[in-house]
């Protein structure tokens, strides 16, 4: 029903686009081969944001990454928001569209965070329906991202990797494997991130995310990592990335840095590090 070939993002480093880097990216992209934008930042009617995005799309493959569809939510999908998304995707024809295994709206309120859901047969059916609805509306396959989570639900009966594999099976969607999220969520659950990667349905992966996180402790003094996107990728996450590439082969790999955004050379250096590891992963 949909084009199920891998998305056409290059197996190169990309960065999350920030408007303050506009001139730098065009002048000296370095190893950066593609850009990712948050869909919700480009839902105005016009002006500089859309004009700059159009200009960037002439030079780079673009990944549109949604943060507001609330695919993991209990409520029906927001059709007005899905229409806005369709308008953006039809206008831009990006190389990829992705969203999150999370919810962000409930009862008409938008919480502006990626909130967790229990993994049960009931939530599996609902999320699968939502993914199918998105793919039908956009007329394309989407990628679904594994979340950074901070707590667990007693009612969960399915492992996250099994939940994701079953969503792929039911909907034909692809997956966005956020390696930092794996590191954060597994550390927060007291589990080995390598084991999660080894259980991940890597054949469906179309993109990898890397990013920085903060470290706190929970009520018992156990590590509690926060997916902050506000710092450099730490060495253990680079090591987990190498472990991941050994399973997936070279993949489009995004450096996410959304808060305390650094000067362009700092971000470009992160992309160069990913590029070196991608080169090693090539056969």
């Amino acid at each position: 029903m949909f084009d199920t070939s891998p998305p056409s993002l290059p197996a190169a480093p990309g960065v999350g686009y920030k408007p303050q880097h506009y001139s730098d990216i065009l002048a000296d992209p370095g190893a950066v081969g593609w850009l990712e934008v948050h869909a919700e930042n480009y839902m105005g009617d016009g002006g500089r944001p859309l004009a700059q995005l159009r200009a960037l799309a002439d030079r780079f493959a673009i990944s549109v990454h949604g943060v507001g569809l609330s695919i993991g939510g209990e409520d029906p999908l927001d059709r007005a928001h899905l229409d806005r998304l369709k308008r953006l995707v039809d206008w831009l024809t990006p190389a990829s569209f992705s969203e999150h295994l999370a919810w962000s709206s409930h009862g008409g309120t938008f919480f502006n965070d990626l909130l967790p859901l229990p993994y049960t047969e009931a939530t599996l059916a609902r999320v699968a329906d939502h993914i199918a609805e998105v793919q039908d509306a956009l007329g394309r396959r989407m990628l679904l991202e594994n979340p950074a989570t901070y707590l667990d639900f007693d009612e969960t009966t399915l492992a996250e990797t099994d939940f994701l594999a079953e969503l792929v099976h039911r909907t034909g969607c692809g997956l966005l494997l956020d390696v930092n999220n794996v590191f954060v969520a597994c550390t927060n659950r007291g589990e080995r991130p390598e084991a999660y990667i080894d259980a991940f349905p890597v054949e469906a992966v179309g993109e990898i995310h890397l990013g920085g996180h903060d470290a706190q402790v929970d009520d018992r003094g156990a590590p509690l990592l926060i997916d902050s996107h506000g710092a450099e990728v730490v060495d253990p996450v680079w090591q987990l990335y190498a472990h991941t590439l050994a399973r997936t082969g070279p993949m489009p790999t995004l450096i996410e840095w959304d808060n305390d955004v650094p000067a362009w050379p700092v971000l470009a250096a992160e992309a160069a590090r990913a590029n070196a590891m991608l080169a090693e992963a090539r056969p």
Binding site: P116, Y150, L151, D152, D154, G190, Q216, D218, R220, L224
Partner: peptide
């Protein structure tokens, strides 16, 4: 119905959200 995945409390974890 929330926990730290090891039977412990989720208070500070929920506070993150």
């Amino acid at each position: 119905g929330l926990s730290d995945a090891r039977g412990g409390p989720a208070d500070r974890r929920f506070a993150v959200y």
